[in-house]
């Protein structure tokens, strides 16, 4: 072996050893003690870093869990109760089960119900449009259809329906991380209880105009007629600013309010089909009983056209 090779081997090895020693001592000197449970908790978390828990990332949430005395105020919406109970078992605490929630879009003003009054030609961004003006229809409360919510959704739980021009929540993917709720300039998203078998009833409208104006702008607007309030046996519906709201903590999913709504502004999801009741058919013919479509049994031709976005994804 030539001396060059030997010198090379020796010099490189010594550089390596010296560097390793330096690294070792530095690592010792700057060692930070961390509760090992933080790592464990973090491992149990979904690592989505979505911020749905209210913390910037999963690590921060894990730290908060380890520090907390009980877990009642901490909840990972993405992982749900399963994740929280495994976190709780790591920390030796009790998990507080929370009801699984899901984002719903409180606007149903697809193009066919809500005629355009002008053409928007700005950046494809809802907030830009909302800061500029009320919207390209007569309704200043409704969905602008530019899909900023889809952009911010980290879980592929939203997509734009080409036909209606509005976003659709994919129920299986939605983690209730709150991103769409925060970003929507018209505050159209709401986190509601997912409900047994995904059954929910809610008012798909945010229009606070008087009935006449609302109706003129959109065929499926809530006109604040309070028929549903009278119909509801559980006092779950209130009206404010000509707009009804169903409180999901009181709603017993009895479905009584749905047929009385004169504008079909109340949506029900994932219910079995109703027996067709021809007498409650109204003008304009807008049948939003998505359950019919959800079950794949189309009783009326209209029902097909108006298939609700939310349920179609579950099939």
């Amino acid at each position: 072996m030539s001396p060059v090779v030997i010198i090379t081997i020796i010099s490189l090895s010594s550089i390596g050893i010296v560097s390793a020693l330096i690294l070792y001592f530095i690592a010792q000197k700057f060692k930070v003690f961390e509760d090992p449970r933080i790592d464990k908790v973090e491992e149990a978390l979904p690592s989505a870093n979505c911020g749905g828990c209210g913390f910037p990332g999963c690590r921060n949430f894990a730290e908060a869990c380890v520090k907390a005395d009980d877990l009642s105020n901490l909840h990972c919406p993405v992982g749900g109760n399963d994740t929280m109970s495994s976190v709780a078992s790591i920390l030796g605490m009790d998990a507080v089960a929370q009801v699984k929630k899901i984002a719903v879009l409180r606007c149903n003003g697809a193009c066919e119900y809500r005629p355009n009054t002008n053409i928007y030609e700005g950046a494809d961004n809802c907030t830009v449009a909302a800061n500029l003006y009320g919207g390209d229809t007569g309704c200043e409360f409704g969905c602008l259809g530019l899909g900023e919510c889809v952009e911010v959704c980290d879980f592929d739980a939203l997509y734009m329906d080409e036909k209606t021009g509005m976003p659709v929540v994919v129920e299986d993917n939605c983690t209730a991380c709150n991103a769409c709720v925060e970003v929507c300039p018209k505050d159209l998203f709401e986190l509601r209880k997912q409900g047994p078998k995904g059954r929910r009833i809610y008012i798909a409208c945010r229009n606070e105009d008087k009935g006449g104006i609302a109706k003129k702008a959109c065929a499926v607007a809530c006109i604040g007629c309070s028929k549903c309030v009278k119909e509801c046996p559980h006092d779950a519906i209130t009206i404010e600013n000509f707009l009804a709201f169903i409180h999901d903590d009181k709603c017993k999913l009895c479905r009584k309010c749905v047929p009385v709504c004169p504008t079909n502004a109340i949506l029900e999801t994932n219910f079995p089909p109703r027996k067709p009741k021809p007498e409650i058919k109204k003008e304009p013919v807008v049948d939003l009983k998505q359950s019919i479509v959800a079950e794949g049994k189309v009783n009326e031709p209209e029902a097909k056209n108006n298939s609700n976005k939310e349920t179609s994804d579950n099939n």
């Binding site: 700005g122 950046a123 961004n125 907030t127 830009v128 800061n131």
Partner: peptide, 13 residues
């Protein structure tokens, strides 16, 4: 490019 549209959005945020 709609530069100002987005700058306005950035400003409001």
């Amino acid at each position: 490019r709609p530069l100002l549209d987005y700058i306005r959005l950035g400003k409001s945020n």
